[in-house]
């Protein structure tokens, strides 16, 4: 892998996962909600996109629906699917706080994963859906990888812009008020649970879009791509970037993806060596995570620059 293609891959996947980190940032840093089931909203977006664009089943296919619609319909459907899933999971759970919310969202993600794995009529079970439709960038004369890198960055920028505007609006101030002191906010007539549900559902939409983009880039959706590891990956990225800022969330994700891609790009002599490198990468990620949470260097740095 050359250096330029490494940068391009980092940009594509980094920007795409940044969308997840941004949403998580909104939910955790501003809404005070710990969502340990992020991957479920991502998966529902990816599967919705695949099901809407896939041709009707034939031959050995076991899935029941393939609507064969154009890609932009699938893309919109991905946002809607993620929104609906957020409504279904958010409505009953958001009255729970802190660690209980973390556990319920985690449980919902596991349930969805198990359904995708076992219920072959959704998406061929563990095999998944392959050859997912995608717009062909060659029509406008751009190279595949470059086009999807641009698409990912565009989605990331739009999400960042949307969240930025949202949080600087009166609605954003209400969110902060509920987060800082729920009783006081309720005293002036703000319904805390309702606000939290709104934040939860709004932040799920871009995750669904990112899922659709992921399906386009990899042209494959399978349960193995959507495990709890992805949720934890996004959490680590969020912690690395330092919480509470949009730029931090993006930089943290890009740094983590670059680190993983760089390790993946090293040529290894044997399978065992590659395996050890993957494990060491996991250990380093975990230790980085612990260190960042313990010393919080970014917050200290920003405090110093302010003073």
């Amino acid at each position: 892998m050359t250096f330029s293609s490494l940068i391009l891959t980092t940009l594509t996947f980094g920007a795409m996962f940044s969308v997840l980190t941004l949403s998580l940032n909104l939910q955790y840093a501003r809404g005070g909600m710990i969502n340990f089931g992020t991957v479920a909203y991502f998966a529902s977006g990816a599967y919705a996109y695949a099901i809407f664009t896939q041709d009707p089943p034939s031959g050995l296919d076991q899935y029941a629906f393939g609507l064969g619609l154009p890609w932009y319909v699938g893309f919109l459907a991905a946002g809607v699917a993620s929104l609906l899933f957020a409504l279904i999971t958010g409505w009953p759970t958001l009255r729970l706080r802190g660690e209980y919310l973390a556990l319920t969202t985690f449980a919902f993600a596991e349930v969805l994963h198990s359904f995708l794995l076992n219920e072959r009529r959704i998406g061929n079970g563990s095999v998944g859906l392959s050859n997912v439709e995608r717009p062909d960038p060659a029509l406008i004369g751009v190279n595949d990888m470059l086009a999807y890198a641009i698409a990912a960055v565009a989605l990331m920028l739009m999400t960042a812009f949307f969240f930025h505007r949202l949080l600087n609006s009166p609605f954003g101030r209400t969110v902060d008020a509920v987060h800082d002191d729920e009783t006081a906010a309720q005293a002036i007539g703000k319904d805390g649970a309702r606000i939290r549900l709104q934040v939860f559902v709004l932040s799920a939409i871009p995750i669904g879009f990112a899922g659709a983009l992921y399906a386009m880039i990899t042209t494959l959706v399978a349960p193995a791509m959507f495990t709890a590891e992805l949720t934890f990956f996004v959490w680590i990225a969020l912690a690395l970037g330092g919480q509470k800022t949009i730029l931090g969330a993006i930089l943290g994700t890009l740094a983590l993806v670059f680190f993983q891609e760089a390790v993946g790009a090293i040529p290894f002599e044997s399978v065992r060596a590659a395996q050890i490198a993957a494990s060491v990468e996991e250990v380093v990620t975990g230790i980085l995570f612990i260190i960042v949470l313990r010393w919080q260097p970014w917050e200290r740095f920003s405090r110093r620059t302010k003073a």
């Binding site: 973390a102 959490w235 250990v283 975990g286 230790i287 612990i290 949470l293 313990r294």
Partner: peptide, 13 residues
């Protein structure tokens, strides 16, 4: 809770 996820990664790896 979030830190313990990092610990799980480090041990698992």
């Amino acid at each position: 809770l979030i830190t313990s996820v990092g610990v799980a990664y480090a041990i698992g790896g």
